[in-house]
Design a protein around this nucleic acid. Structure first.
Lengths: 353, 353
DNA sequence: TGTGAAAATGGTAGCGCTACCATTCTGACG
DNA sequence: CGTCAGAATGGTAGCGCTACCATTTTCACA
């Protein structure tokens, strides 16, 4: 009944084979494989050669069983957008496969109460060597504290960060928001609406701050009424856009805190007979697939998600102590480079304005 | 240096603990856990009770090591859209966690030549007990044949299917396409443009067939010129839409084989000053996030991706022989229910038509 | 050149589970 | 009521690797 795993070609090369081939003990091979210190470099080289010669691949199950380590890393998954998750996933997978670990995606039920989150977290303790935490999970103090208390190596993408066994990788949301606002101002816009993101996320505040500072830097007055709430969802964007476009005088540009809401602005503009960008400029944030699948293509900010994920993997393995991680950035906070993507949704404001 | 996996709370319950608790040998427990035959039902019950009482969870690593099985399933990943992949992932993860297996996402570099695909496939033989193959990978004859030849349990989502150790789960693309075309016809459309999908995918043909048959069923003439090529990408949709909208007389509706291309139609229509749906109706396929983030919201076909993925997991475990899979559908081909989602992108054609 | 501490290496005993075979039990049948 | 096939159960030997400790080697310094 129980079926075997599919064919097995040449019989598997095991650690002891490598040891024999290199003329050392299995233990020494193990040490080399695991990048432990106290192995003479000449020995190390010899072993590495044998590893290559025999094309040895360590058996993860045996490793995990004997070593009482999981060799697994979890990518927590609250409910970011599909795009965000899968970009992350791809980057992380690619990187982790280089390190002989496994990446599992773990859903963390993000129910109303933060307490519940803790429940689902605790069930995965011991299952993994470390976790990667994207927003919005990374914004929950309870998540951060839980990981901290239990000394679980973690890398946060955006969001909070702590001081224990964790790191944080993100872009500079503030700078990006400031730069894209600068861009609008330089086009000539003076009344720029801003749609906030979900207040439970750290980046929401950062982006708003960037917007405000850009205005200030150009000597433009900050009008509180131009700031409207949003939740990063398309629907919330619709409401926000309607509110902004109903104002008199109307803003000549809108900076939505993400692309979904920016797309909503486009929809509202269209339904109200406003041409984008002629009558209204719109910018978003994220460069999601949506940004290039709406008309006109959105001007937005691109985060290097795949690279961030790869960086997260490296940092995490470093944190875990899995050695072999060369060039991992040791610092607690790594800021990646974002990029402003110019679309067709922005132009100078109408002359009449 | 090497860090332990995080805390370990109560010491792990092992199989032998259960055996002692139930007053049987470890082997018997193992048999029960693995759902093997030849265990008296009274014994089985007793063991199951002990398992529950001690909250025993088998150690995957030990199982894999001793049993020479992987307890792992791969979700192959060519390059479907982010949305498609992550929907699948979520459904599959949820289901597989119930069965004590692991789901790994495996990128299969989908390079120009199908041969290359085979290379990357062969590297994962023996690593997994089975694979789930979504499109476009599921459409490659080479992939199907390879899996067949090597007797690797596989479940295909859409695409091809074979006759060996594999199953196929999909919706009835033909019926869905026919139904949504019917809908357009019933609204009064007679000149309906059709944008084909990527010819390398099975569903492309099915959708076209559904379109044709709907026309025929309503006694409408089939005009070859109304069929234009597409590749499921937004850009290909732009081209196709321009071509269709340049025709005279213009079609009053467009059926794009997926939402990305439908969104492109919206963009082209907007740029040419056509109001959707007043002057042009547009329908898509997939109900991707895009469908509800464009203006107007697309009328489209929703596939139950998460359920399909869950079904795929069940079928696969059944195929593998992992027992315990109750109610798995044994048939080679399972068709899931699709749903027509009515959006605001469709209406009766302009009276002038 | 002797000495001791640290560096380098090796031996052994499992990790928790299942394959394989041996053994015991059951019950239908002569 | 003995017999024996088949069902039910148990014992044992590893799967491939690493933890832990013992042993050997190295080398700076007296």
């Amino acid at each position: 009944m129980a079926g075997r795993s599919a064919l097995q070609k040449e019989k598997t090369v095991k650690l002891s084979d490598v040891a024999r081939h290199a003329g050392v003990s299995p233990m020494t091979v193990s040490r080399v494989i695991n990048g432990e210190a106290n192995v003479r470099s000449s020995t190390k080289e010899r072993v590495l050669e044998s590893v290559a010669a025999l094309n040895y691949k360590p058996n993860l199950s045996a490793r995990a069983l004997a070593g009482n380590r999981a060799y697994k890393v979890a990518l927590l998954y609250g409910n970011p957008s599909a795009f965000y998750l899968s970009e992350l996933l791809v980057g992380a997978l690619e990187e982790i496969s280089r390190h002989g670990h496994q990446l599992l995606v773990q859903k963390v039920s993000e129910s109303a109460s933060e307490e519940k989150v803790e429940d689902s977290l605790s069930s995965l303790i011991g299952e993994y060597d470390g976790v990667i935490v994207p927003p919005p999970l990374s914004d929950y103090a309870s998540v951060r504290d839980f990981l901290l208390e239990n000394d679980i190596p973690a890398v946060f993408l955006s969001g909070l960060s702590g001081s224990g066994r964790n790191r944080k990788i993100c872009i500079d949301d503030y700078a990006a928001a400031k730069e894209i606002t600068d861009y609008l101002i330089e086009l000539g816009h003076e009344r720029i609406g801003f749609i906030k993101g979900n207040p439970n996320q750290f980046s929401t505040g950062e982006r708003l701050r960037g917007y405000k500072d850009a205005l200030a830097a150009h000597g433009l007055a900050f009008d509180k009424k131009l700031i409207v709430r949003g939740l990063f969802t398309y629907d919330s964007g619709l409401k926000a856009a309607r509110k902004l476009l109903a104002m008199a005088p109307r803003p000549t540009a809108i900076f939505a805190s993400n692309d979904d809401m920016a797309a909503a602005c486009l929809a509202v503009a269209a339904s109200e007979g406003l041409k984008v960008p002629t009558n209204l400029s719109v910018v978003g944030f994220d460069d999601s697939p949506l940004a290039s699948a709406v008309f006109p293509r959105l001007t937005t900010v691109k985060q290097p998600l795949a690279e961030m994920a790869a960086g997260a993997i490296n940092s995490l393995l470093d944190l875990i102590g899995s050695a072999q991680v060369v060039g991992a950035n040791q610092s607690e906070l790594v800021k990646m480079k974002y990029k402003i993507v110019l679309g067709a949704s922005t132009s100078a404001p109408p002359a009449s304005s």
